[in-house]
Design a binder for these strands. Structure first.
Lengths: 176, 176
DNA sequence: AATTTATGTCAACAGTGCTGACATAAATTG
DNA sequence: CAATTTATGTCAGCACTGTTGACATAAATT
């Protein structure tokens, strides 16, 4: 048994539900949804000896080809070392190439290779299928509502970043 | 330089957008939304020397007080060892207590202590605030659409499990 | 010429998944 | 009752991905 300092802590036998108006349903739905959403690409990645971090790098290099290392760090909000590890592997394995920056030769522009593009699409396909299935029967209004919700879950300072990604409707954040 | 097997892999300079009808917008929205959604509790947990895994255990023990270790494993879909590590720490620190199962004395029913309940609510609060903010101006229809979407993102076999959590509207999955 | 910036790299550590093996106590079965 | 199965705990070790801090180089800027 674990050491007890004073009185025995009594077990609470009632479930938390909507205490203080806390939204437990959506909290746990976010957890379950994200877990299963990532499970398909995770399986594919494992075959290549890659992980989720490789997926993210591949994804954004394909979405923003030519972005620099610093820009990628800013999108992912991870440290240089976390990125360096996976980026090196992706470059060595021929999924991504670096091109010296044209203006600033210190910069390394990152581009996918055909192989990198192919893998990215293969990873996106099951996720997109899952999304389509989840949107089955939903109208344009409902889809818009879901996109609005997800975007509003992101930290406000970072929402502009999302708008700069190709094919995204710029922020109808609060009016404007 | 990395070894190159044959021809130099040419960098692809065009962004992936809606290739093959793939839904990149929602794919990356899910990533950004979940990342920021977990950031607030992560910060609090760090003060306690806990991580995200502790949060999940605390959450479900509070949502389903008295559930057994096996049931918790089934909800989280992790291995015994992954759970054991964090559960032991939560018990030793007095956030969770084990009670011998009444019918089956091999089972350990898990309950939050008052301390555990308090921490769980503190972790849920910022997440719930974020959700409320994201739903600002949304009607009941829109909220329902979002819940439907998130639930449909979960693997079908597991959706029933979600319905058993307190305060959740049982599955209008496809008819029924 | 000196400083700053963009990138790369090394070492070390933490959290949380995983596998496989083994131990114990309690329940179930033949 | 004896044998088996089940629920749980625990040990060792590994992988992935995040962290910090330090240091090196080349190129741009001041």
């Amino acid at each position: 048994m674990a050491q007890r300092s004073g009185a025995t802590a009594q077990p609470i036998r009632t479930a938390v539900t909507a205490d203080e108006g806390i939204d437990f349903s959506i909290i746990e739905l976010m957890y379950f949804a994200y877990r299963d959403f990532t499970s398909d690409p995770d399986q594919i990645l494992a075959e290549y000896g890659f992980g989720r971090a490789h997926h993210r790098v591949l994804h954004f290099v394909n979405r923003l080809p030519g972005l620099t290392v610093a820009e990628l760090l800013d999108v992912l909000k991870i440290t240089k070392q976390s990125l360096a590890r996976v980026l090196k592997q992706l470059i060595d394995a021929g999924y991504i190439v670096q091109v010296q920056g044209p203006r600033d030769r210190r910069q390394r522009e990152l581009y996918p290779t055909p192989k990198g593009r192919t893998l990215t699409l293969a990873l996106a396909r099951p996720q997109s299928r899952r999304i389509h299935a989840a949107l089955e029967g939903a109208g344009e209004t409902e889809r818009a509502g879901i996109e609005r919700f997800l975007k509003a879950m992101v930290n406000p300072e970072l929402r502009a970043q999302i708008d700069h990604l190709p094919g995204n409707t710029p922020g109808k954040d609060h009016g404007e």
